[in-house]
Nucleic acid binder design. Structure first.
Length: 445
RNA sequence: GGAGAGGUGGCUGAGUGGUCGAAAGCACCGCUUUGCUAAAGCGGCGAUGGGCCAAAAGCCUAUCCGGGGGUUCGAAUCCCCCCCUCUCCGCCA
């Protein structure tokens, strides 16, 4: 058979664990998941495959005999018979192709399985706080939000961003520029010391790579499509370096001795923010383009849990060293994306998020997502066709992939500006960034 | 962007219509020989799907020579489209 279309979950796995898969789909709020269809299509596929193979075998044997046949009449008869077989095979293959396409479409509706300890729940409200660090910042003066700070300290130009590119684009200026570069340096240096290989990735990638990671760039509806596509090409602007870092090793067979492989990638990220119209319209919290340093790991199933916790620990360390209060959420089943087996979100304290206080009319402050880390097990690697070979098993096995944000610059900047502001309107620079920013405080020009 | 060359197993590389999944070499694994090392000899060594088997081992079978389509009883080999790499030229940060 022509090589199978790589699938997200393995159809055989779904067949063998149908009840568990269906229960998981319910927990994941995947109402449109078609697990039964997967089994049905896969049955038909198998049947067609073996029918085709029997015919092909017949045809192969026949062909083999033709050169030896000396009698011209008999030879012609054999050729005619071969022709008939070829036509039957072609018909079966056409049918098979359709079934494979149906199967693939059904498979796309099935999310990854879920870590047994992940909280079961429907909405973000069911995410479970698993740890907390620091104390939400209190001010003994009237604080400003980061937009006001950026304006008074001349750190960003949102009007110019809107004018040149559009709403939710921005120019960074002055210390904000140095802050971005400092955040990159701070995290890169840390990760390199931890054995991560630094990478600067392309900011664009092919549609197939996006799909392999779990994005849906072919979403025909521009109202819901999450990524920007480049006209007249099969390229998209990447939404995260997870896409390019995962794609980096696609179609490769890795040596088990080289696992786990850990990379830290720098890229720009582009997001249409479809489905979030009117949310967080001001400032840097939700923007169409930002810079991000991303961790990405390839490992064996045995290593996957430890690597996930390692990535989470690094994310926590980064925010501890930045001195930003945060908590960590264990993402509930209903809030996990398709590819994630388990996901932790790290949310930093942001004084200007949250509900408006009814008496003062001012925000009460809330935690806002700054980084996250997902263990995608073999979900992405199966589609990207990334496998490994080792001495203790025959053939190849699919690797596991994990990702985590080291720093998403704009979100970190929101947290820094708002938490580090002082009564005189200046903003202190977190200690660990000072060597790269080159100063201790951001002051009025 | 223009002209040319080329994409074959982990690597090098032969193969231009039929016992070719593919010579040979390297690498790798096993065995033998040899004070050790080294070397030599012999053997093994691709992926994916399907089937047999309780399962593993093993066996059988189909498909895969950059990707897709076509011609043919039969394609690595012929034709078309696409992608990629290399060389030269042009352009350019």
């Amino acid at each position: 058979m022509p090589s199978e279309i790589p699938t997200m979950l393995d159809a055989g796995f779904i067949r063998d664990n149908l009840a568990a898969v269906k229960a998981n789909c319910v927990n994941r709020q995947a109402a449109h998941a078609e697990a039964d269809k997967v089994v049905e299509f896969d049955d038909r596929r198998k049947k067609l495959v073996s029918e085709t193979q029997i015919l092909q075998q017949k045809g192969n044997e026949l062909s083999k005999g033709i050169p030896a046949e000396k009698d011209p009449a008999k030879k012609q008869a054999l050729i005619a018979e071969g022709k008939a077989i070829r036509e039957q095979v072609a018909a079966l293959e056409k049918e098979l192709k359709q079934v494979q396409a149906d199967l693939h479409a059904a498979l796309l509706t099935i999310p990854n399985m879920t870590h047994p300890d992940a909280p079961v729940g429907a909405t973000p409200a069911d995410n479970k706080v698993v740890s907390k660090w620091g104390v939400p910042t209190k001010f003994d003066f009237v604080p400003k939000d980061h937009v006001a700070l950026a304006e008074s300290l001349d750190l960003a130009d949102f009007e110019a961003g809107a004018s040149v590119t559009g709403q939710k684009f921005y120019f960074l200026k002055n210390e904000a520029v140095l802050l971005e570069l400092a955040l990159i340096q701070f995290t890169m240096q840390k990760l390199v010391k931890r054995g991560f290989t630094p990478v600067i990735t392309p900011d664009l990638a092919r549609v197939e790579v996006l799909e392999g990671i779990g994005f849906m760039p072919r979403d025909p509806n521009p109202e819901t499509r999450q990524v920007y596509t480049i006209a007249d090409s099969d390229l998209c602007l990447i939404a995260t370096a997870e896409i390019t870092l995962g794609g980096m090793l696609r179609d490769q067979i890795l040596d088990e001795a080289t696992l786990p492989r850990k990379y830290v990638g720098l890229s720009h990220c582009f997001r249409t923010e479809a489905g979030a119209p009117g949310r967080d319209t001001k400032g840097l919290y939700r923007v169409h383009q930002f810079t991000k340093v991303e961790m990405f790991g390839f490992c064996t199933p045995e290593q996957t849990e430890a690597l996930h916790l390692e990535i989470l620990a690094i994310e926590e360390e980064i925010f501890q060293e930045l001195g930003l209060p945060y908590h960590v959420l264990d993402t509930c089943t209903g809030d996990l994306g398709g590819p994630a087996y388990r996901k932790y979100d790290l949310e930093a304290w942001m004084p200007f998020r949250g509900e408006l206080d009814k008496t003062t009319g001012k925000p009460t402050g809330d935690y806002g997502e700054v980084t996250s880390t997902s263990n995608c097990t073999d979900f992405q690697a199966r589609r990207l066709n990334i496998r490994y070979k080792g001495p203790n098993h025959k053939g190849t096995r699919v690797v596991h992939t994990l990702n985590g944000t080291a720093v998403a610059v704009t979100r970190a900047m929101v947290a820094i500006l708002e938490n580090y502001q002082q009564a005189d309107g200046t903003v202190k620079i977190p200690e660990v960034l000072r060597p790269w920013v080159g100063r201790d405080v951001i002051t009025r020009k």
